[in-house]
Amino acid sequence: MGQSRSPLGVTDLERLAARGWRGSEEEPLGGWLLRAGGGFTGRANTALVTGDPGRPLPEAVGAVAAWYRARGLRPGAALPGVQARRADAAFAGAGWTRDEDVLVLTAPLVAGPEPGVPVELSPVPDEGWVAAYRYRGQVPPAIARTVLTSGGRVAFAAVRPGPGEPPVAVARGVVTDDWLGVSAVTVAEDHRRRGLATSVMGALTRWGAGQGAGWVYLQVSASNAPARALYRRTGYVEHHRYHYRWAPEGA
């Protein structure tokens, strides 16, 4: 993959990515997007803060808080790039705590060679795929299947040590317009450093190219040094960063 400049800016890429990883409920708040998905992942359960909420910022912060509390969820907001600085200050002023940075990486999509190991691709995740996926080190809840299968053209990659055996590496791909989004890359601890993450990602980029995608994006936590090193080696560059803010517990 080369290192050409992404054709989308921060707001457009965030809105596109939101279409590829959706909760079970969405509602606009001016230019912001309220998203709920049973509490599974920040991306599906936070307000995407892009553009103008159509009301004063303190009032918008209160509206976000009320919307999530009405659904039994801790209110949260995703604040991408420099465009969200004023809103970020408003959330901070209301006592919302800040998480670490998440990097959004992009690259032109070039279909690479066949993976070094067999990689299965399926339009839906089977029980073995879901069991192999780890979100923040935990087995995902039942609502995860709804979020994972949202977003339109989706593919689930899996590497199995033998026919019918549980996967030891998995990843998810979704094509939105002409972009491939890669997520949920998980390799079993005792199978790491064998190139399996590269294999499942390679299979998804080949699939994405076949779906007409010309660019690829993914998200990685700033603290995940091994993953960042892998993506850097394979040609991804930082497009922008975002972080979450969460309302005080019990407020």
Rank of each mutant, 00 (worst) to 15 (best):
V130Q: 10
V220L: 05
Q219A: 04
E189G: 14
R193Q: 15
S199A: 15
V187I: 05
S221Q: 13
R145G: 07
T234W: 12
W179G: 10
A188F: 01
L230N: 09
L204G: 03
R233P: 00
A227P: 00
W129H: 06
Y217F: 14
T234S: 09
R192M: 05
W215D: 05
A203I: 07
G137I: 07
T176N: 14
R206K: 07
Y133L: 12
A209H: 14
R160T: 00
R192S: 03
A169T: 10
W207G: 11
G164V: 01
F156S: 10
A184E: 15
G164W: 02
Y231L: 08
D177R: 14
G162S: 14
Y231N: 11
A213C: 12
V220S: 04
Q219P: 01
A142Y: 08
D126R: 01
A184D: 15
A144G: 06
P226Y: 05
G162E: 14
A158K: 00
L196K: 03
E189W: 12
A169F: 08
V182S: 13
A184H: 15
V139H: 12
S199H: 14
V185P: 04
R193C: 12
L218I: 08
Y133V: 12
P123Y: 03
D178P: 09
Q211P: 11
V216W: 01
L204W: 04
P163L: 04
G137L: 09
S183V: 11
G173Y: 08
G210S: 05
A188D: 07
A158Y: 01
T176K: 11
N224T: 07
G212R: 09
A157W: 03
R228K: 10
A144L: 04
A203H: 04
G151I: 00
W215R: 06
L204S: 04
W129Y: 11
R153C: 07
P226Q: 04
G173T: 09
G128P: 02
P226G: 06
S223A: 14
F156V: 06
G137D: 07
A213I: 13
A157S: 11
G152T: 02
G210Q: 04
R153P: 02
A184I: 08
R160Q: 00
G128D: 06
A144T: 05
G164A: 00
F156E: 08
T198N: 13
G195W: 02
M201P: 06
L148F: 13
L196D: 01
G137F: 06
A229E: 13
T198D: 15
R172N: 02
V159N: 00
V200P: 04
G235Q: 05
G162N: 02
A197N: 05
Y231V: 09
P167V: 00
V130D: 08
E189Q: 15
P161R: 02
W179E: 15
G128V: 02
A142D: 14
R134W: 02
A222E: 15
V174D: 10
A222T: 12
D190W: 08
A171N: 01
L218D: 10
V168Y: 00
A157K: 08
G210Y: 03
A142G: 10
L180M: 13
G210K: 03
